[in-house]
Design a protein around this nucleic acid. Structure first.
Lengths: 220, 220
DNA sequence: GGCTTTCCATACGCTGGCGTATTGACACGC
DNA sequence: GCGTGTCAATACGCCAGCGTATGGAAAGCC
């Protein structure tokens, strides 16, 4: 990628560069930390540059969010969607608990943001798209709609919770190179993957749903 | 609780009142939203009151965080700790996915906060205490240390993830009064509760860990 | 009823970030 | 080369929030 430059070899910034820097700032300082002048300093320019590319700060946030939404849907989901076998796809889904630290920080920063109201819309769309995709993946295993939904909610919860644990308690989470990590992922694999039995009788009896008898139901 | 008042029936604020208002502000506007003058307006006073009770804004944040840490440890954990039977305790733990919306908003706001560095210390302490408690609860079922840790990590992840889903996708989460909610909780109960078999043979074979054979191991 | 303590109001200066206006330096078409 | 368009620096006014200083009202003490 050849960047545009001036004759004196100084980099010319584009709106995309600003949007990317804003996304990075969201990950490091939160949405409130997306301030024009600090980002300009980080980019080595002044805000005179910014207000040529954008009308105001909100427009920068929108650009960053669009960039984020596109990445989270197109890239991440496509990466899993290439798995055609339903079971392999769900397995791939489970291993996604080990996503990049930067991506997870952006996600949770946006998730807890309140001030520009439209941020919540982006978060909601991305989250819903992810959840729906997971539901579809479980449905492809032969589960009923209700059961696919339950499994997907649990798997999505594990995914989101793992991101938070890795950030809040990095010492408690096994490193990707340790054997404990691979063991934990395999543990999740067993716990988050329904058995063929679940896929078979997925017409829940009114009193005893099929998932109830899965492992015997320990007397509750 | 009798509040102190002046003769003209005007409420006298205490430092605790400010800390509580700050905690509320964290839940509604995030840590950055803890601003002295806005909170003063909400409390119906001016910041002249605040700077009598506190030296500066950081002290207010510390007071709010101390209050939060005390509540999250003493209250919440004690509520579960009253269950003496190990199995009942884990079950009680799982139903805790349905905590108050306000508490969950505070937790995630603090979790994604970056600016005052000491916030992370409080979050880490509270999170670690929660996780350790869950680990102990699973260990009380007879699981080995490694297994208790795995189950606890998954359960804690589900708990944290559920909070986030309820906030980001409130429509996707079943309401507490719907039957779907009770069904989902029972589903979690089965999925997050190890079988007696797990508790029995918890000496992992080197090649085939015991959790591997739990449900047959679907060929990975 | 003075005196002190407690709690709050008011007024002020300061800083950081937003947005605008103006000017300037290249690059490019022609 | 000479306008014209592109990108950026500088200077300015504005506002919100922090922290300080000072004054003041009510209550308690004796």
């Amino acid at each position: 990628m050849q960047r545009r430059m001036t004759k004196s070899q100084k980099v010319m910034l584009s709106a995309q560069d600003w949007a990317e820097a804003a996304l990075d700032a969201i990950g490091r300082r939160g949405v409130e930390g997306v301030a024009v002048e600090p980002i300009a300093r980080e980019l080595g320019v002044t805000k005179g540059s910014f207000y040529w590319h954008f009308p105001n700060r909100e427009a920068l946030l929108v650009a960053a969010l669009q960039r984020w939404e596109a990445r989270e849907t197109d890239e991440v989901l496509d990466r899993v969607q290439q798995e055609t076998d339903p079971r392999a796809r769900v397995k791939r889904l489970i291993t996604e608990v080990n996503t990049s630290k930067k991506a997870s920080r952006i996600y949770s920063a946006l998730s807890s943001a309140t001030k520009p109201a439209f941020v919540r819309d982006y978060v909601e769309r991305v989250s819903k798209r992810r959840l729906d995709f997971i539901i579809d993946s479980y449905a492809a295993l032969g589960l009923s709609a209700d059961n696919a939904r339950r499994w997907a909610l649990m798997t999505f919860s594990v995914f989101l919770g793992s991101l938070q644990i890795r950030r809040d308690l990095p010492g408690e989470w096994p490193n990707a190179d340790e054997p404990a990590f691979a063991e934990y992922v395999r543990f999740l694999m067993v716990s988050l993957m329904p058995s063929e039995l679940d896929a078979a009788n997925n017409t829940p009896a009114p009193d005893v749903p099929e998932w109830f008898a899965r492992r015997g139901g320990h007397g509750f």
